[in-house]
């Protein structure tokens, strides 16, 4: 589709493992490997995977907290991957990030007002008075009292701090928000409040989200499309309903069956995967999932499966579904 807001093309990120006297890289951790996808305006793309799947690295690479090892990140046609930090600055305001732990990402010595005002100072030419008015307006939008601007982060609960993080990200009117596990540190009753807020803001501001989380139920709730990652690779990508009804990749299947559901009447058939995720410094040959795959065939050990559109808008990389 030509009108994608964001197009990520074959992006990889390797981290060097340094050693020896000269600190030369001895090996690389392949955190993400040739990831490609598009994001449309106003769309929510859920990214799920377990620890070590590369989902956080992906988010951080897109906003260039990390420099990609290869590939391109096209925002409205401009390749962010090729820009230096200075040239990148005007684009920063369009893609903002919300982190898991809102306490660690808010400076404890700054008031809430100063925190939300900071991006406005950097990215807009608003006067001091206009900025402060804007801060009060943003606080109201995220469901906090406009008078909260004189208080400090420690005076707020986890859910409220997450609201502050969201207000801050919203302040400079981004078109994309990358949210990395935004609700996983919150209690159930508060988690629902923040999810509802994020969904309401999406409508109001026509935001596109990249919503990174390990909790499949949360991702299913908020996303339009869902992408499943394993050991740095995208293994499946489809519209939400299609993915949850007809998972193609055995890893997606196992993931769906692993979630304990809050319904004691539903006794599920379990696919319990054996073993742990292999190390990304030394990923398996062939399909990266073959060491744990209940359906692995001989070909899986040798040949990397191709990323293919198996049915309309449903992509996977699995030899079971490879079309000649």
């Amino acid at each position: 589709m030509p009108n994608a807001l964001l197009e990520v093309k074959n992006v990889s990120k390797y981290f060097p493992i340094q050693g020896g006297l000269l600190k030369r890289p001895r090996a690389y951790v392949r955190a993400i490997e040739r990831v490609s996808f598009q994001l449309q305006p106003g769309e929510t793309l859920g990214v799920v995977g377990e620890s070590g799947s590369g989902k956080s690295t992906l988010g951080r690479t897109i906003i260039r907290l990390y420099d990609p090892t290869e590939g391109s990140i096209l925002y409205q046609g401009h390749d962010l991957a090729r820009l230096n930090q200075k040239a990148l600055r005007p684009y920063r305001r369009h893609i903002q990030m919300v982190f898991q732990d809102p306490y660690a990402s808010l400076n404890p010595r700054m008031t809430i007002g100063a925190l939300i005002e900071e991006p406005l100072k950097l990215h807009t030419k608003l006067s001091r008075q206009d900025r402060q008015e804007e801060v009060r307006r943003l606080l109201k939008i995220v469901g906090l009292s406009p008078d909260a601007h004189t208080r400090y982060p420690h005076e707020f609960s986890g859910g409220q701090r997450q609201r502050i993080g969201i207000a801050r990200a919203l302040s400079i009117k981004p078109s994309i928000i990358i949210a990395d596990e935004p609700v996983s540190a919150l209690d159930v009753s508060i988690q629902a409040q923040v999810i509802n807020l994020m969904m309401a803001l999406r409508e109001t501001f026509n935001l596109a989200y990249i919503f990174i989380a390990h909790d499949l139920s949360v991702v299913k709730h908020i996303s339009d499309r869902v992408m499943v990652m394993y050991l740095g690779h995208v293994v499946e990508l489809a519209d939400k309903k299609e993915l949850f009804r007809h998972p193609l990749h055995p890893y997606t299947e196992a993931l769906l069956f692993s979630v304990p559901e809050p319904n004691p009447h539903k006794k599920k058939e379990r696919i319990v995967l054996s073993g742990d995720i292999p190390s990304a410094a030394n990923p398996p040959q062939g399909c990266v999932f073959h060491t744990r795959c209940p359906k692995a065939m001989n070909v899986c050990k040798e040949v990397k499966p191709v990323w293919q559109e198996v049915s309309p808008r449903h992509w996977t990389a699995c030899h079971l579904h490879t079309k000649q």
Binding site: I190, F244, N263
Partner: peptide
């Protein structure tokens, strides 16, 4: 009841979660 209504579930497709207002 509030807790049960606040959790997103894989099996249903409701749009809005019934959050419990306020904090502990």
């Amino acid at each position: 009841r509030g807790l049960m209504a606040a959790i997103p579930r894989l099996e249903d497709e409701k749009e809005h979660l019934d959050a419990i207002p306020g904090t502990v």
